[in-house]
Each structure stands twice: as C-alpha cells, then as structure tokens.
Nucleic acid binder design. Structure first.
Length: 678
DNA sequence: ATAGGGTTAG
C-alpha cells in the first residue's frame, strides 16, 4: 500500500481513487482523518465531503459521525454535507441521528439542513417525522423561500399528502417550473389527470420534466394513447421520456410496441431502459428472453444495477434456477451492489423458492433493515417448505420487533400451518386476525382455512366455513375443498364441488381431469366420456406436466412424451434401471391407475413416466454422487411419483428436492418433509 | 422535479 499523501490536493486525489476501487478499512480512514486534521481542513470543504462519502461507500457511516463530532465549529455546512452524502449513498439514511448529533454538538441546523432532512423523510417515506420537522421549521421562524417551500411541497407530494401539498403550493408567492412539476407529480400520484393537465397547460415555462410527468401520469392511468400523444408532442425528449413511454407500453402488456421503441432508441438507452424491458419480460413469464436481454445489456457495456438483479432473481425464483440465483448473488457481492430491502427480499424469495432455506435465512439475518416484505417472504418460504413451526416462530419475532403483520403475513402463517398440519395453531391465528390485529380476513384467508380443515379431514366444517363466508368462494377455495375430498375419498361431495368449479372456472383443464378421474374411480364410464367431450367442445387443454432441472448452468426441461432431449436413450435406459431397483424394494407402480391424480399426464410415446421422474433420473446420471437434486415442476406431483421419490432418495443416497406447483418436497432417507400430507 | 425493482392460499 502506498503511503497516504501529505498535501491537500494529492490527498483528495488519493481519496477519490482509493474509495472508488476498494473498501477503506478503519485504520486507513483514521490515517486520512489525521491528515485532514493536520491540514487546514476548513478551507477544503470538498475534501471533507469526499472523506465523508468514502466513509459511507466503505460502509462505515459511524466513522463519519465520529469525524464530525470531533469538530468544534458551529458551522452546519459540514453536517449538511453529511446528510447529503448519506442521502446519495442510500445506506441507512440515519438523518435523525445526524440531526440530534448537530444539536448535541451545539450546531444550529440551517435552512439547508431542514431542506435536506425533508428530502430524506420524503425518500424514506417518513410522513410523521417530516411533519414534525415542518413544525420545527415554523418554530425556528425561518423565512420561507422558494427552496424551502419547494422542499416542503416535494415532501408532501412524495408521502402522498395531497392536501398539504396543495396548501404549500397555494401559499407560494411565485411558482417556478420545479414547483409546478412537483405539484403535477403529486396530482398524478392520486390519479387527478385533469387537474394535472390543467396546471400543465397553464404553465408559461415547461421543461422536459414537465412533459415527462404528464407522460407517466397518463401511463399510470392506463391511457397509453394520451401518453403517446404527450411523448410525440414533447419537443425536449430525453432518455426519461423514452423510458417513461416504454414502461407505459410494458405495463399495458404491449411488449411489441415497447420493443419497437426500445430498438429505435439505439445507443441512447441507459440502464433504466434495459431494466424496464427486463422486468417486463420477467413479469410476462418470458424468463429466457429476460436473461438474454441481460447478457445483451452487458455486451453493450451498460452497467447492470440493483434493479436489474431484482428482476433476474425473480426470474430465477420462478424457474427454480438455484445455480443461476447463486451466480447472481456472487455478482452482487463482487460488484458491491447494495443489498437494500428490495434486493434483500428478492434474494430471500429466490432462495426460498429454490428450496435453499438455509441460504434464505442467512440473507435474512444479514439485512440491516427488514421491512414487511422481507418478513413475509421468509414466513411464506418457511411455510412452503414444510417448516410451519419455524414460520410461526419468525412471526413472533417479527411482532417483537414492532413490525405489524398484514394480510400477506397471514396467508403465509395459515398456509404454513396447513402444510405442516398445525390445525389448532392455524385456527387460533385465523381468529386473531380480526380480533387481535384488526385485519379483515379476505377470500385468500378463507381459502387457507378450507385447506387446513379439509386436509385434517374436517370436510363438514370446511363446507360450513365456505357457506358462512361473507364473500363468494373462488376457484381456489373450491379447489382446496376438492383436494380434501380427494384425499379423504369423499366422492359425492367431490363431484358436487367439481361441478361448481366447472361453472366458475370453465377453462381450467385440471378440473375436467379431476372430474374424469373421479368418474373413472366409480366406473361411471359414460360420465368419463361426457366429461372428455365437454373438454374438447370447450376447447380446454390440460397443461402438460413439465419439470426442469439445472445441470452445469443449463436448465433442462422435460415434458412427458417429448423425446427431443439429446440423451433421451440413456435417460430411458436409466429409468428402467430405477424401476427395477424400486421393484426390488417392494414398490408397486400404479401409473396405469387413473384413479386419484388430478393432473395425471398423458402416457404417450416411449416415455412412461411423469416429467419429474425423468428430470430426477437425468439428475442422478449427470451429477456427482451425493449432490442434492433439485427439480421444479409446473403441476402437482402425483402420489405414485411421490412414493417413488422417497425410495429413490434412499436407494441412491441422495437428497431430492422437488418444488411442485404448490409446495416443496424435501426427500431424504426414504421420507419426505411433507409427511405425505399435501 | 421526471424513468426501472420485491412478498399472497388449491
């Protein structure tokens, strides 16, 4: 390491260089601190600002506070720099700490200090705190100038307090473009397009931001045509205008139009443009396209950001692509991207949905701040993976930390109880929702309860609950009941429910298959035929079962009956070998039996097994012994495959994790984490 | 001052 320069200008250069390329450790920060103090630092505000910013970039914001507390100057400008730096860095904007630090050190906050603090409150959504500061500003008797007023206006606009925003706006003696623009965005946030448009039309001066605000305003309302008109009329188009209209097309599901504009932009695209497109593809389920867009983005030297990572992680979560998810996590670390609540949540969700619970828990504990999303993701994830008790334990800790649960939290808790068979706990939490937490149960919570009761065999109670519901049952609720009928072999009720379900959701192929299987189990072949014909008549197709497995960073997909995999012959031979092995262990295959599986796949061509079995066979033959096999399936796994998997996990001494449509099965040593209860 | 991101039951 080179020694730290002594004179001010080379110290500044050194600092800029070091802090950009590496984390500064504490001793290096201390040495630089000493150098600054031995120099005439009062005349080098920019150097100090640079130093403070280095502290933040090196993730040692507390050292910045140490630095400031050693100053004796009553001048608030360095403190203001600190707040500004903290705002820019986005790491723990502890503006409240800085404010009290100023007071503790007898530094009188200036008007600028308050403006900055208001911005911090606006960005972090601290509505109450910001209002308190507003009162403080009035008490201190500051003269209201444009900057302060615009700050207040922006604060109220950002926290969504339209009334106060209007009051500040009206009270302004003069309104410049900035103020008008802030007001437009406040109005647009509440959907008042006409008022916003009025203001816009009456403005004497408009800049690109004014136009862009109107574009997003129309986009938010779904009026893409008016948005496009604004875009076309905008004489000062910039990247933001393009990005806004592209996002507008994406949000209204017109990806072709979005792609067209995207291509037109050429090299004018920035990272936001790419992120917009990538997230749009992820949201449409076109994960492959999203990933190749990411590669293209890199080849065009546009820096991926935290937002890019969030979208990609979401794609991994859907695909169950753990290897790629881990690669992204590594990328985040090497590029030192900031793991904030949103990115943290995306990581937690990805690991949970890939069945890597320990990794999810590690990320969760590593977050310095956790919001309701993070808690919900870990609670839902634990429940989904059959760890209901731990989900409840997490819920209890969450409460202790003062985070208020919401509807999603209860979906996680209740479904977790259901997956783990915790009947009484589930019932208790359901009743506490309204009684203790003041949350009105929604149809999704009733759905969870029907599932919980039904699985435990309380079919009558489940039916009563559906009758007593304040809303109409949807297909999820009836589907839960149906599943319970199937498990507990109540064919009579099952038939009734299926009929209802068919009326409610005539396009869901799974329902027809269930009904057909139900009739078959009663040997009512005429009804089986009628049902099949009805399916054909209505043009309903059953989603084919599809399982994927990631081997050496390549996702292999298997569909029953599809022989296109290059190693088809070897896989098929290996499947026979497995079947022999299973037979030796006393497993009686029941694939010829159409009785009990809602979503049994067609047994076509040369492949006689469900897709998950093929994927597992491929995994066994192409990965080293002892490696965990992870398979993702789009439908629910059938009971025959389920019992086969248990035996395979034992015979081949492998942990097999199958994520089916609804939950995880962790097969190990001949048993499954779901306790055969799914 | 304007653009891009996350959790939900069968």
């Amino acid at each position: 390491m080179t020694s730290i320069p002594k004179n001010l200008s080379s110290l500044a250069d050194y600092l800029a260089f070091r802090s950009q390329n590496a984390f500064l450790n504490l001793s290096e920060l201390q040495q630089i601190h000493c150098q600054i103090l031995t120099n005439d630092y009062f005349h080098s505000n920019s150097l100090v600002t640079n130093f403070l910013s280095s502290c933040f970039r090196s993730q040692k914001p507390r050292y910045a506070l140490v630095f400031l507390q050693n100053l004796t100057s009553p001048d608030p400008s360095l403190w203001n720099s600190m707040i500004r730096v903290s705002l820019e860095s986005g790491v723990c904007p502890d503006f409240l700490g800085f404010y009290s630090g100023m007071l503790r050190n007898d530094v009188l906050p200036s008007k600028t200090s308050f403006s900055l603090i208001l911005r911090s409150c606006a960005i972090s959504g601290e509505a109450q705190l910001g209002e308190a500061f507003h009162c403080q500003i009035m008490k201190m008797g500051f003269e209201y100038d444009m900057i302060l007023q615009t700050g207040l206006l922006d604060f109220y606009a950002k926290v969504g307090d339209l009334k106060c925003a209007k009051r500040v706006f009206m009270g302004m003696p003069r309104r410049d473009v900035v103020a008008n623009n802030a007001m437009i965005s406040a109005l647009s946030k509440h959907g008042y397009v006409e008022e916003a448009r009025n203001l816009f039309d009456n403005m004497t001066e408009r800049n690109s931001c004014s136009w862009n605000s109107m574009i997003t305003c129309y986009c938010k309302l779904g009026d893409i045509n008016s948005a496009r008109l604004m875009f076309d009329c905008n004489p000062v188009k910039d990247v933001v205008s393009w990005n806004a209209i592209i996002d507008g097309y994406c949000k209204s599901k017109q990806l072709v139009a979005a792609q067209e504009l995207f291509l037109l932009m050429g090299s004018a695209r920035n990272s936001v443009t790419w992120n917009t497109m990538i997230s749009a593809y992820v949201q449409c389920g076109e994960f492959g396209t999203a990933i190749s867009m990411f590669q293209q983005m890199q080849s065009e030297n546009v820096k991926p950001t935290e937002v890019t990572m969030v979208s990609l992680l979401s794609a991994c979560a859907h695909l169950g692509a753990l290897d790629m998810g881990e690669w992204i996590h590594g990328y985040i670390r090497t590029k030192r991207l900031k793991i904030d609540v949103v990115l943290g949540n995306a990581l937690i969700d990805m690991y949970c949905k890939c069945g890597a619970l320990e990794a999810a828990i590690d990320v969760f504990h590593g977050l310095s701040r956790k919001n309701i999303f993070c808690w919900n993701s870990i609670i839902v994830g634990l429940g989904m993976n059959g760890r209901g008790e731990e989900a409840i334990a997490a819920f209890i800790v969450m409460e202790k930390e003062g985070i208020k649960p919401d509807g999603v939290t209860f979906v996680g808790i209740l479904s977790g109880c259901s997956h783990s068979g915790l009947l009484s706990a589930g019932q208790r939490y359901f009743s506490e929702m309204l009684g203790v937490y003041g949350l009105e149960p929604g149809v999704e919570h009733y759905g969870c309860m029907v599932d919980l009761l039904g699985r435990a065999g309380y079919l009558k109670e489940a039916l009563e609950l559906i009758r007593a519901m304040p809303m109409k049952p949807n297909s999820m609720v009836l589907g839960s009941l149906l599943r319970a009928c199937q498990i507990h072999k109540d064919t009579k009720l099952g038939e009734q429910v299926t009929q209802q379900l068919l009326e409610l959701d005539p396009c869901d192929g799974g329902n027809y298959v269930f009904l057909s299987n139900l009739y078959a189990s009663l040997s009512r072949w005429d009804d089986v035929n009628t049902c099949r014909k009805l399916m054909i008549k209505r043009g309903v197709h059953k989603t084919p079962g599809c399982s994927s497995i990631e081997v050496n960073n390549i996702v292999h997909e298997f569909v029953a009956g599809d022989t296109s995999h290059p190693q088809f012959t070897q896989i098929n031979a290996f499947l026979d070998e497995i079947a022999k092995e299973l037979k030796g262990q006393g497993h009686v295959p029941n694939t010829a039996n159409v009785l009990h599986d809602i979503e049994e796949e067609e047994k076509e061509g040369a492949i006689r097994y469900h897709s998950e079995r093929i994927a597992v066979a491929f995994g066994l033959m192409s990965t080293p012994p002892g490696k965990t096999i992870r398979v993702v399936k789009n439908l629910r796994t059938c009971s025959d495959c389920h019992s086969a998997m248990k035996l395979i996990s034992n015979a081949f001494k492998r942990e097999i994790i199958v994520r089916d449509r609804k939950r995880f099965h962790h097969f190990r040593n001949g048993s499954c984490s779901c306790n055969d209860y799914w």
